[in-house]
Design a protein around this nucleic acid. Structure first.
Length: 180
DNA sequence: TAGGCCATCTGGTCCT
DNA sequence: AGGACCAGATGGCCTA
């Protein structure tokens, strides 16, 4: 993994690009963060394929005359998909902020975020289980019973997995920080 | 220039 | 029927 996260902050995202593109098209509708109403066949990002990329793209991808012709349903679908992806990215961002590492200068990639979060959760679970060391209150009612089951589940899971989950996590943080 | 990461478009499939 | 979800394709941006 390369140390490109910082630079990526400087780089314009395609959303920003599209927003710029929108300025030429229409005022941006800011219904939510990262939301751009680019019902313009992708704006800048797709410009190349529109302008000159069709020769290569069209070989593999169908032509979509309906879109060019103003297929409203397709465009609406694109917009919904964009919104969905923006929500997904917001969730990724929230996850990044939930991981201690994110407070540093780099932005974690998605795969890094998921990997780190996974190990973070597991190391926290291990810590909690270690602290409680099986001294949970006696099952009293359904809720306590569930807690006990959960405890057993995690304990079993951790036993089946490798040791050193926490050290793995810390190592990962370190390597991410190093930008390796 | 290659490789990594990402946003977007798109059609298919699943779900309500 | 229409929206949500998914995966493949494509191309832009960046770093080494």
């Amino acid at each position: 993994m390369k140390s490109k996260r910082k630079a990526k902050r400087n780089r314009k995202t395609s959303v920003e690009n599209d927003q710029e593109f929108q300025l030429e098209m229409e005022p941006a509708s800011s219904d939510h963060e990262g939301s751009e109403k680019s019902l313009n066949l992708g704006g800048k990002r797709r410009k190349k394929s529109i302008d000159n990329g069709m020769a290569s793209s069209a070989n593999r991808r169908k032509q979509y005359p309906g879109v060019k012709g103003g297929n409203v349903r397709r465009l609406e679908s694109n917009e919904r998909e964009r919104q969905r992806m923006h929500k997904l990215n917001n969730a990724f961002q929230a996850l990044r902020e939930a991981i201690p590492h994110v407070k540093t200068e780099k932005t974690l990639s998605k795969i890094e975020t998921l990997t780190l979060a996974n190990n973070y959760i597991k190391s926290l679970t291990a810590i909690i289980l270690g602290m409680s060391s099986g001294c949970l209150p006696q099952a009293e009612g359904e809720e306590s019973s569930n807690t006990s089951k959960l405890f057993q589940h995690y304990q079993q899971q951790l036993e089946e997995e490798d040791d050193g989950r926490l050290s793995n996590y810390l190592t990962q943080i370190h390597s991410f920080r190093e930008g390796s």
